[in-house]
Design a protein around this nucleic acid. Sequence first.
DNA 1: ACTTTAATGTTGACAGGTCAACTAAATTTA
DNA 2: TAAATTTAGTTGACCTGTCAACATTAAAGT
Lengths: 158, 158
Amino acid sequence: MTKKMLEQSGKTIPLQQMVTFRLARLHAKTNAQSTRILNKSAGITLSQWRIMVLIESHGKTSPKEFVKHTKFDKGLVSRTIKGMIKNGLLYAESSDSDQRSHSVDMTEKGLALFERARPYMRERQVRLLDCLNKDERNALFESFDKLEVAIDSLDELL
Amino acid sequence: MTKKMLEQSGKTIPLQQMVTFRLARLHAKTNAQSTRILNKSAGITLSQWRIMVLIESHGKTSPKEFVKHTKFDKGLVSRTIKGMIKNGLLYAESSDSDQRSHSVDMTEKGLALFERARPYMRERQVRLLDCLNKDERNALFESFDKLEVAIDSLDELL
DNA sequence: ACTTTAATGTTGACAGGTCAACTAAATTTA
DNA sequence: TAAATTTAGTTGACCTGTCAACATTAAAGT
């Protein structure tokens, strides 16, 4: 297949301008960096970090709530929490009202690791936000919102 | 760790406002949807699709070029291409100038599958772009560029 | 020429993440 | 209340993606 043939065969959207492609690349980069920082600073994984961030801001949390707020896979959440309890980073409290459910909270050890990683993660977050001005930041989050809605409305497309 | 970092270490940025978090969630959604569309329309994976998109826009391509343009893992690229050749979607041509290298191009079968998936993927792409106006689109891509640069410049942070 | 260094790809091991089946408890409905 | 449905969480199978070690070839330095 020659380049000329391709040019004739219709309008192609350049790779660099595809939202999903750019999204994937940026996500891969940020993810890899988070993983490195978290491993080096506190020896924790990104999934563990995310659980702790939610607990830190919402207080004691159940897997259900976590899934609801983050849309992460409940299987992953279940396994991550299980591992964290085993490693003494979290402790579980069974719920009175629902025997299926339980809440988790950070132990001293978990909190200590969280505090070790936080300055680095925060600095990173701040620097990421600082590379955009206020308008750009707002526009970015707005676009994220719109894209999420668009994705959902596209599920009919199959 | 700098003094500034320590001073900030107590305050919390809400989860919903974290760039990386939003990025991860949006990426997960788009990825899952792509995977579904590609599987249903052509029985191919997202990795395979991406290889084909690059071949379609750049013509015959080597793994090296693919890695260079997309920043995807070379191991993944190697395995994906290997599988695609095995399934008759691509064919390889060894390079004269470099005995280590080879180029790949789409076979008829590969192209046919690509064409089957393309309308859906293009429609999706268009609809995603349509949910943003021109300014928002430009701003989004610009922000992506800036964030990628920022991420790279952050690697010193450890 | 020859040793060293860098580039290209392949492979194995593993963590991250998705999907679906499953258990058990709660809720709804008939 | 009993049956059916929904919800919370767990688990197994599987795929994707990352990292590092490796073989091979090319390029650079001496």
